[in-house]
Design a protein around this nucleic acid. Sequence first.
DNA 1: GACCAGGCACATC
DNA 2: GATGTGCATGGT
Length: 224
Amino acid sequence: MSQAYEKLLLEAYRLMLAAFGPLNWWPGDSPWEVMVGAILTQNTAWSNVEKAIINLKVHDMLDVSKMAATPIEQLAQLIRPSGYYKQKAKKLKALVSFFQREYGCDIDKMRKEELPGLRDKLLGVHGIGPETADSILLYALDKPVFVVDAYTKRISSRHGIIPESYNYYQTQEFFEMHIVPDVALYNEYHALIVYTGKEFCRPKPRCTGCPLERFNAEGGAKCT
DNA sequence: GACCAGGCACATC
DNA sequence: GATGTGCATGGT
């Protein structure tokens, strides 16, 4: 483990936490709601996901067996505000089947499973890719997995911490290599990155006021 | 009206 | 294994 990167990443965390945190993620009342939210938020603003989840709740559809019994077209209409609604309805159905088949809808049974295997099983479900799998592992199942998203890559590459060319797994390995595996820490770290990214690290950057401005100078890299 | 949002599956090379 | 494309709503 590189001491320098360890220190750098903890300092970035400290700065973001001082500015915004703690954020107490994931916004959801139950592990199942977290899993559903993880699908719905794919490439979508969370405000739109909230509308879809409210629809599900109002129709008493945030329930595994009821979701299973509901026609996919009806499910799709309920989640329409979250965008890509036909695809996401199919993905939710796949998640429901998986949760029923593998765990009998028992979240504790799922939580007891070991990491490499559990992750691979999630990745085998239609609609669950690396980020969705890791979000579920960390935020619904309390596994010490560092979640990488567009903001994670953008922020860390703009600050010169990782090369822009790093893919999901290279980025994840870097963070997990330099930050001690701790569920609460990984939880808050990812939340802070997303929050900071939303505010200050958009594709067309305007980084004034970013809590990592001081970090720029110290790290020798600019958020351009 | 353009751009963006807490990706993924699938086709193609 | 890397790269390109379709998917869709709602806020700024």
